[in-house]
Design a protein around this nucleic acid. Structure first.
Lengths: 233, 233
DNA sequence: TTCCAGACTTGCGTTAGCGCAAACTCGGCG
DNA sequence: CGCCGAGTTTGCGCTAACGCAAGTCTGGAA
């Protein structure tokens, strides 16, 4: 861990409040590595031997069920801490993390987790805060799955993606990594067919533009209305 | 906090690993109180002014959406720590907690949360572990809502309830607090009608017995098959 | 003991969304 | 430059589950 730009790292949420010296102690124990697009950072069920900080890129967190269904738990962007299995009382990873684009991560041996959290309570607190935030998001998703129709859920998912990792393009807000209909289906508990139909209808309405593994939102406001179940404006 | 039996408390998960002295310090700051059946321990959106340890009973954690839908996030039993909003980065309670039966709780002013977690890292870690466990459960629920049919979800919910807070009765495993069809519907993202139909059909099969706000599982194994989508045995 | 409200049951029509299947599109590789 | 296959679109029939409505049951209050 020598040639990574610290000024960026220092501002990441997990390190909030830490002194530069403390930061040094933590960072000098880390290794950085590149994860090419579509390669896993870690895999579900594997021994949780390392934890990671995403320095650049986006990862897709995926769970696979016994009967072969895949569910996208979430996308995580730059600055996210991932793979902290012990924080939720596990020794294996509960999900796989796949690079959605080329990524750069820092990683630490998991053996350092108890040590670092004990020595740097702020680091621990920040990490746990991330877990708490994920709990809240997940809970919101439960509510959505329980009470909202598919169209609203898909609209919401697209909006969330755009907000989290959207980029302005000439046509509107572009989701900044390849995402298929299947992916959106796995985020919303539906099928790629239904997603395709919905995206098509939205495209007819002029709310989005979409192509192969690409979605651009041209009328976010309208899409928000849809996500609230108000189909017409 | 004087007349509560410490031997029971000392064995609760949140206090695992703490010395008796540390435990004393924590407990002497607490107040105990009785929450009668159906009364709230705390309410969604309210300022999170206190956190609680459930000494006896069962609480129902409920979220209400803007459009008036209720969702039961989970049931928590004796030994659960609840209302720790700051652990997930909030200053208000994200949900309401309602006593499902007469309950006894300990409570601390929220102002003590930073102090106690800082002073007793094991207490902090145990609390955060609880958050982590809830994240995992919630995530599993997302998966279930995404891929499983209503019948499987309801079967699973009943099994979970029985496991968590079931009591042996002459007929089988009884869910040990009043639970309505509506409640089960709010746990599984369906309607009381559908739940009623399912329970009726299971009763015909001899898998359960049920009455007003009461469910007894007589054939857990069969119910498990149903929850796995294998309707026949 | 009677009454009542809240819990539950059940029939019926409707529909959102699934599953299958067939066709199309397009980016990249040979 | 043409082919190939993954990603996508779309039509069609089907069904799980909802929503409504009209009951029945039951435990506790009066």
């Amino acid at each position: 861990m020598a040639r990574i730009d610290r000024s960026l790292i220092a501002h990441m949420d997990v390190f909030a409040g830490l002194s530069p010296d403390d930061l040094d102690v933590i960072l000098e124990r880390a290794n950085s590595s590149r994860i090419p697009k579509y390669k896993p950072v870690f895999e579900q069920e594997a021994e949780a031997s390392r934890f990671f900080l995403l320095l650049d890129g986006t990862v897709r967190v995926v769970q696979t069920t016994k009967d072969g269904h895949q569910i996208i738990a979430r996308y995580l962007g730059t600055g996210s801490i991932i793979g902290i299995a012990p924080a939720i009382g596990r020794t294996t990873y509960p999900a796989s993390a796949i690079a959605a684009v080329d990524c750069v991560v820092l990683c630490w041996p998991m053996a350092l987790w108890p040590e670092l959290t004990a020595r740097f309570p702020l680091f621990a607190a920040n990490s746990y805060k991330a877990v708490g935030a994920r709990l809240q998001e997940t809970q919101e998703r439960v509510i959505e799955l329980s009470v909202a129709q598919v169209e609203q859920r898909v609209a919401n998912a697209v909006l969330r993606l755009v907000r989290q990792i959207g980029r302005k393009s000439e046509d509107g807000l572009l989701i900044d990594f390849p995402i298929s209909r299947q992916d959106i289906a796995e985020m919303t508990g539906t099928t790629l067919h239904t997603v395709s139909r919905l995206l098509s209808s939205w495209e007819d309405l002029g709310v989005i533009k979409s192509g192969r593994q690409k979605v651009t939102v041209t009328d976010p406001h309208r899409l928000m209305l849809i996500s609230e179940g108000k189909k017409d404006g």
